[in-house]
Design a protein around this nucleic acid. Structure first.
Lengths: 234, 234
DNA sequence: ACGTGGAGTTAGTCATACCTACCATAGTTG
DNA sequence: CAACTATGGTAGGTATGACTAACTCCACGT
């Protein structure tokens, strides 16, 4: 029983599969085995085996060669993991003073080993936050998630203004660069010149012009807003 | 790699065996298989198998039928676990506001899953404490442990005065009762009348006389001190 | 219609950490 | 001294969750 962890007690491996599925299925598509294998860095037969187990548990809809999708129960279980993960990240930054760009890996481990009692204590100490340090919404105890209307930064047209709402926490190096550039949740920016053919774009943050390859901002999600006043001149 | 945890990365099971061995061997004796089995609530063949693995790892001195004992390296590894455990307990009480009597089980899980970076962050936030909430000393980063001269409460003679220094955190119910009685680390007390034949003893705490069976104070460790002044009258 | 390549599965291993059933050694006692 | 008992081991089995090797399925191109 070494792996025993939280109330409903799925193994860490099972929880990781559910999370991967959640992130990959996006707006309700069936996720192919190979994609899960790539995302989890595990060989394909391992995926097949685990999907069968999760199917038997009633957490995932799956048939041989048919792809996989979370069931209602699977989605609920995923929300519990996500809540733990995001509360832990917030906690590590706010209370333990760890760096924004460091906390993802820690949370990746801890999310599987916190009791409900601890999670709620953390939530209480933090004052029931609604977003984690990367800007992702924290699911409620009931598993509901605040819906938002986010688009990838690179999809903005020249002159469009937006607020950074979420950055992908998975890649430490990128996080560090973004942080230097001021590309953090809450930052206001405006898209400058785009050269789609070359994959190069200019972004204005706090009146500083930043040049970057489109690849370099993959994982930054923004919310569109009315363009800056200066752009509306006579 | 699901079980991957902290820097040196022993599995949770291995760390639990080391801890049990540490607690049982006391002042350097060889611990029999059966005792470990009882303490870990695991069958004897599992103990034999694990001792062999730990022996192969160079953490435990063991030969068939010879009992087991931590090596120097095993002891060092144990100190790292103990440090994590006790810092976590302190943290749960001081920062998360969990109850004194609740934290042991949480810490039992978390001690296996905290990175060095997190442990040191916790240590920093707590201001480098030297004792956990149950009064046990917290090993330093180098693995050294403050030595103290503790005796079981029940070993005091009538009239002897002492300070509670440590309570065994493993049994929630006892902890709760001790807490009610004021038998917490730091409490000053004096042994009253003892009836060893009946296993009954009286303890005076804050001038209140508490009657208890000797069994009921197993796990309370005290430091002897000069008897109270009132006892030295003309 | 047919062959090929990639996606997905089956089959069989391995490591960890547990278990039960049974065997061996040794120490105490009639 | 033989028998009984406690202690400690061996053998063999289970569950997870990963792996490689090898097969099947099917869509697509010719």
């Amino acid at each position: 029983m070494v792996g025993m962890t939280n109330s409903t007690s799925l193994s860490p491996a099972r929880e990781d599969y559910l999370k991967a599925l959640y992130h990959l299925e996006g707006d309700s598509r069936r996720v192919p085995t190979t994609e899960l294998a790539r995302s989890l860095e595990v060989r394909k037969p391992s995926i097949t085996a685990m999907l069968r187990r999760l199917h038997d548990d009633g957490l995932v809809a799956w048939e041989p060669r048919g792809g996989a999708q979370l069931t209602r129960r699977g989605r609920a279980a995923t929300m519990r993991v996500l809540r733990r993960h995001r509360l832990v990240e917030t906690f590590l930054v706010e209370v333990l003073g760890l760096d924004w760009s460091d906390v993802h890996d820690e949370a990746e481990v801890l999310e599987h080993h916190l009791s409900d009692r601890m999670v709620e204590a953390i939530d209480r100490v933090l004052g029931h936050p609604t977003e984690d340090p990367h800007g992702s919404p924290i699911p409620s105890t009931t598993g509901s998630l605040a819906a938002r209307d986010l688009v990838p930064l690179a999809s903005l047209g020249t002159g469009e203004a937006a607020i950074v709402r979420k950055v992908d926490g998975r890649y430490r190096k990128r996080l560090l660069r973004w942080k230097e550039l001021g590309l953090v949740p809450g930052a206001r920016l405006e898209m400058g010149e785009k050269r789609d053919d070359e994959g190069i774009l200019h972004v204005r943050i706090d009146d500083v012009d930043v040049l970057t390859g489109g690849r370099g901002v993959e994982g930054i999600w923004v919310e569109r807003r009315a363009p800056a006043v200066s752009e509306l001149g006579p």
